[in-house]
Design a protein around this nucleic acid. Structure first.
Lengths: 225, 225
DNA sequence: TGTACATCAGTGAACGCGCGTTCACTGATGTAC
DNA sequence: TGTACATCAGTGAACGCGCGTTCACTGATGTAC
């Protein structure tokens, strides 16, 4: 095999990165194969050596973006185990950084609706991703809390996160961050209902903050208010 | 003027109806001018006598859909003035009927994200619509409630509504309605916080239920649970 | 160590289809006389 | 009342562009000797 074993895998990864960012920033319909390949430093012809079709890429790029953004959002979460982990995750999601950087953020508000209407494969990827998100939020609550409570809070928090981000992005910049602040206030109240307490101390999830995605002054303002 | 004055206006309205339904059901990118005109019982060539471009139609169809769906959701709201009006509006939005009928429902979860990335005009329509929705939700709360409280609850409720509907539509049918139920439970709790009481009695908004959009058994189940 | 070779990642021209848009034309309608 | 006419809503062929996809080719690479 005349090429390094890892070479092709790395190229594929570069295409995925480019696609995941472009789709999140501009939407699926507005981004062509040629755009993506250019962003990856390649020419359009090479695309089909890595993916069977645009649909195929779409599903893969969504999953890729989802993984990326979960990592990114964890770095914004202050990960303080003594506080409410579900709330922390939601506050990180509804942060100014996430608002300002759709290209690195959650793909659900960016192109979830578009994905849903593409191939069966793409849709299945979305469905599986939503299930996973709900399960993950469930696990951020004290294990012994009633199932009904956990389901309710996970569902409500996720809906608020996704809807809040879409709506904030539909407003202009200042209105958008104002709106996000109101959503955070809302969840602080809503997730602090008496029936969730007492909480168990949980393991810390603290991560190092990636430089390009470090908390901005706006996020610090977010946290204070 | 050799044609009835109202004729052209009515045709335009038929195109708008067709476009608003098609965009909500299949998304903007998947629906062509020819599809829409066919749905309106016309041929594609006549389109430009009514709209300057697809972009132009897009903005108009969004506004049209928004008005339509607000009316539709009001018929699902039981309009009982003695109960919480904000909650009632949210429960109607998060109903099984709305889940099953994107083509008659709110355009924000259906193609808000796509609209946002089109022309400046389309985007401005979305922004204005979100502002209007927030104001309307604000007005459903007791006037004398603190501004901060009203903003928080309106923002949170709207985020939950839009996000909840998108996510429910991303799941399969049974999972989707289960998920919506959890969202409704969440809002029942979240909107019933002590600081909103006491509530003033408000004017009733009761409307007659349109036959094709009457409450389904699923909605009645929604209300019971 | 150097050279010939086989492999295959990536190139870029070309194809074909769909869709937004245009335009010359048709024919239904109300008006004038 | 009936006929000629002007208007303009709607038709459908055609255009051109962009994009997904294909394919014959190039050239960079590791291997064999």
């Amino acid at each position: 095999m005349p090429w390094p074993k890892e070479h092709k895998r790395q190229t594929r990864e570069r295409i995925l990165d480019a696609a995941a960012a472009a789709f999140r920033e501009h939407g699926v319909a507005q981004v062509g194969i040629a755009d993506i390949m250019r962003r990856a430093g390649l020419t359009h012809g090479g695309f089909y050596a890595h993916f069977a079709s645009k649909d195929d890429l779409l599903a893969a790029a969504f999953a890729h973006a989802s993984t990326q953004s979960n990592k990114m959002l964890e770095t914004l979460d202050d990960g303080d185990a003594s506080t409410d982990q579900l709330l922390n995750a939601a506050l990180a999601y509804l942060s100014s950084t996430h608002l300002a950087h759709p290209e690195h953020g959650c793909p659900v508000p960016s192109f979830g609706a578009e994905l849903m209407r593409n191939s069966q494969k793409a849709r299945a990827t979305l469905t599986a991703d939503i299930r996973k998100r709900l399960k993950r939020l469930n696990r951020l609550m004290p294990e012994q809390a009633p199932m009904e409570t956990k389901n309710r809070l996970a569902a409500g928090a996720l809906a608020c996160m996704v809807g809040g981000m879409i709506l904030a992005r539909g407003l202009n910049e200042t209105e958008g961050s104002e709106y996000l602040k109101h959503c955070r206030d809302f969840l602080r109240e809503a997730l602090a209902k008496p029936d969730r307490r007492p909480e168990l101390p949980q393991k810390s999830n603290r991560r190092r903050v990636a430089s390009s995605l470090a908390k901005t002054p706006a996020d610090r303002r977010d946290a204070r208010e």
